[in-house]
Design a protein around this nucleic acid. Structure first.
Length: 573
RNA sequence: GCGCCCGUAGCUCAGCUGGAUAGAGCGCGGGACUUCUAAUCCUGAGGCCGCAGGUUCGAAUCCUGCCGGGCGCGCCA
């Protein structure tokens, strides 16, 4: 069992013992009792707030409870000291043997160190990317793709069963426009000189699509009315675009399990509507005119509406247009209905910032459809500002002038892109500067973390080159300074659980930065004091112990990077 | 008008499911090299955590109101 849950158990046992012995009133709730590392390392290795939390319900003074608890905990063989501090904190200092044991545990668990059973029995669907199939992936899609993928990996590492999913918006007006744009390129491929009207997709990427269509159909549809080719061309073009999008995603190391087509929903939409209707949540009505500036040509019309307001939305939402066709929202409701029917215990969607206004109605729909039993967590992913040496790079899909994901990956590499996308909370804006992300300096976390890992690999190479014959590592050779590094590495299982619970993969990146900093600090002590080096030629025993320590740090770095989908570097150049 | 997000050091941001003296990087001052044991490290200065109330033993964190910035708000997708 991991360190922190183990000691949380010790604290709970001690408190229960005090209750059983009559020193504390029976039946106190321990729900708010925490056992965590204190912010300040000088306070010890673990701190619990138990005395302060329990003081009021127990009708006792915090310090009195803390003293009793300290006496109990001090008896544990792993506890070196237990001291009451501040308003009633209980600080525990652990026996150094605990950290040596943890070091051995890291080595024994290897790539599984930090894996958690937090999500055991739960099956989460994470939907991300879901870019319209109207062109290749550009940098606007990138962040959601990486954050979603890392979140999925994080949840999997935390014990959840995870399905990674992509929703293909292949049914609306935009893909019809795409099909018309492809038809133009088709005619172009057959020798016509074309002009691309305003509102069509002008990008070069449709040229090969036109060629493929020309090769498949010959001139059959050049002058045919749109009704004869639109659906066909749409299907072909979307399929080719999706092929390309999948290839783009593969370059980023992203492979999703399910690609769900909006066009394939069919009568699922009616089913979802019926389900809501059966619960009395559908009615015919007229929405109020929207406030604000966009209300000039608005006319009141009766529509089929979903009672979203009953589930916390600000307005009821249209499912069916006045002409009887479905709204986009209706399709999305049906899609989530489908997900629910597939039996997930929780749903996660990643939305771009421009879809923030959509969150309430979607969560309302899922709440209605699942009787509130399946939570939908929508993560908003903010825009990425692309910079080149401080100057903004302009992008516009409409004009066909955008920076593709493939270009960026080719320029700076998959690992850099992925890491940088996780260096901030996903709901705050992110700058991506081509110059800075490849810089080899302290303020580039990609480099900084990789450098720590590379240094460890280097130390091991150096030891081998020097012909040092390593005995089995005797961890007793490690002193308090060495063990400080183990304490940071030992945080990893906690970080995994906290990040998974908060569904915030960026925490992994921040933690790795901290771990790397702790390692670099240790490493640099060797500059001033050769006895603190990791490789000491005339002391193979100490070298073996130190390399075991370094190995554990490297292992945790690799495990963290693996969750982020980044490969650990053996050397940097 | 309504809704959502944000406001933390000069700058970029962590911390926000309440804990002890609010952290990191950059930049600025001082120090250790000349590159996988200096791509790094150490050290110093720098904060009404937007403002005002409230809840609590305890608030950057939760609640309310305000101020400031961003985004969204039709039957588009």
């Amino acid at each position: 069992m991991n360190l922190y849950p183990r000691f949380a158990g010790h604290v709970a046992d001690a408190l229960n013992g005090l209750m059983a012995g009559g020193d504390l009133p029976a039946g106190l709730s321990l729900a708010n009792v925490t056992v965590e590392p204190p912010r300040d390392a000088s306070h010890g290795d673990l701190a619990t707030n138990a005395a302060m939390v329990l003081a009021k319900p127990a009708g006792m003074k915090p310090r009195d409870i803390a003293v009793m608890l300290a006496q109990q905990l001090a008896r544990l063989p792993d506890v070196a000291s237990a001291e009451v501090a501040g308003p009633g904190f209980l600080n525990l200092t652990l026996d150094p043997g605990v950290w040596r044991a943890e070091l051995a545990a890291i080595a024994a668990a290897g790539a599984d160190y930090g894996r958690s059973a937090l999500g055991a029995g739960q099956h989460v669907n994470v939907e991300y990317v879901s870019a319209n199939p109207t062109g290749p992936m550009h940098m606007g899609h990138c962040r959601g793709a990486v954050v979603g993928d890392a979140l999925a990996s994080l949840l999997a590492f935390a014990g959840f069963q995870v399905t990674r999913e992509y929703y293909i918006n292949d049914a609306g007006g935009q893909v019809a426009t795409l099909a018309r744009s492809a038809h133009l390129r088709y005619r172009e491929a057959l020798g016509e000189t074309i002009e691309i009207p305003e509102g069509f997709y002008p990008g070069d990427y449709l040229v090969p699509v036109g060629q493929a269509l020309a090769a498949e159909f010959g001139p059959a549809y050049v002058t045919a009315p749109e009704s004869e080719w639109l659906v066909l061309f749409r299907t072909r073009t979307v399929a080719l675009m999706m092929e390309r999008i999948r290839a783009d995603l593969a370059q980023l190391g992203i492979h999703q399990d399910v690609f769900f087509s909006e066009a394939s929903l069919g009568n699922r939409v009616q089913e979802a509507l019926d389900t809501l209707d059966a619960r009395g949540l559908i009615y015919q009505g007229v929405l109020e005119a929207p406030k604000g500036e966009a209300g000039e040509d608005w006319e009141p019309r009766p529509q089929t509406l979903f009672k979203a307001t009953q589930f916390g939305d600000d307005s009821d939402r249209a499912m069916q247009k006045s002409d009887g066709s479905w709204t986009y929202f209706a399709g999305d409701v049906a899609y989530h209905w489908d997900k629910l029917e597939r039996g997930y215990t929780a749903l996660v969607d990643l939305f771009g910032a421009d879809h923030g206004g959509y969150v309430k109605r979607m969560t309302a729909a899922v709440r209605a459809l699942s009787d509130g039993k399946v939570p939908l967590d929508i993560k908003i992913v903010q825009m990425v500002k692309l910079l080149r040496a401080g100057e903004p790079v302009k992008m516009s899909k409409r004009s066909g002038n955008f920076v593709t994901l493939a270009d960026v990956v080719e320029e700076v590499g998959k690992d850099v892109v992925r890491f940088i996308m996780l260096t901030k909370r996903s709901d705050s804006q992110l700058d991506f500067d081509f110059a800075k992300v490849v810089e080899q300096s302290r303020d580039n976390p990609v480099f900084y973390v990789q450098y720590a890992h590379a240094r460890i690999a280097s130390a091991k190479r150096k030891a081998a080159e020097a012909g040092i014959v390593l005995p089995p590592a005797d961890l007793d050779r490690l002193d308090a300074t060495d063990l400080a590094l183990v304490k940071v590495a030992a945080q990893w299982p906690r970080i995994v659980e906290q990040a998974a619970e908060a569904r915030e993969p960026h925490r992994i990146a921040f933690y790795l930065n901290d771990l790397a900093a702790a390692f670099h600090t240790q490493w640099n002590m060797g500059n001033d004091d050769p006895a603190r080096r990791f490789v000491i030629a005339d002391d193979p025993g100490l070298t073996a112990a130190r390399l075991a320590l370094a190995d554990a740090v490297a292992q945790v770095i690799r495990n963290g990077l693996a969750v982020m989908g980044v490969e650990a570097a053996e050397e940097l150049h």
